[in-house]
Amino acid sequence: MDSHAAVEHGPELLHHFSDAEQQRNAASLGMWLFLVTEIMFFGGMFCAYLVYRYWYFGDFGAASQTLDIRLGAFNTAVLIGSSLTVAMSIWAAQTGRRKVLVGLLLATILLGLVFLGVKAVEYHDKFEHHHVPGASFHFEGEVPGHPGLPVNPYHAQMFFSLYFAMTGLHALHMIIGIGLFSYLTYKAWTGYYTPKYYTPIENAGLYWHFVDIVWIYLFPLLYLIDRHR
């Protein structure tokens, strides 16, 4: 049945592809298309954010300034660091450094966990201050730059609804990513990936970088509204 049995290839080549390059190109294109769906998936939330930020800019500013900018910036740095370790792990796979590869993948997981830990601290803080949308939500304050103009608590709640929705969806993606990388680490440790075949690492890496890019936008949009006032 397999007419190309004579062609030399690894066990990872599936029957319906004619060669490893075709399989790799298919996997890569598939991953990129999946990331496009992810862009649009987050896009719906970005659209909601944009609309309400346009309507309630002052209230959004006041709510945004209750977020801890140091933790936000720290987490940004952590994620960028993890993107570096992911990029380096591709290099390690391409050059066949198995131990380095495992180490870099572990470092990625570790940085991902640090990010989630900091996020948990921030969520806990919001919970303490009754900034979690719902029945016990409470927000008082003035619109930045407009002394005496009180913040509409509904509009502040809208900010926090979007904050939790967007960062929550992002965190969910991080958790999935950490799961993926745990599996990759195990496979890499067994020596499954070679300089000829490392497509899963490449594709998981694309996913991780995408999640990083989402955060690159979330950070200024959520933490940096009207900070100068």
Partner: peptide, 23 residues
């Protein structure tokens, strides 16, 4: 590919809104 994710996230927002009344 381009459209379906948007309706998916919208439906999520409807469900969240219905369950938690976030507004």
């Amino acid at each position: 590919i381009l459209g379906t994710p948007v309706v998916a996230v919208t439906i999520v927002l409807v469900a969240v809104e219905r369950l938690f009344h976030l507004g």
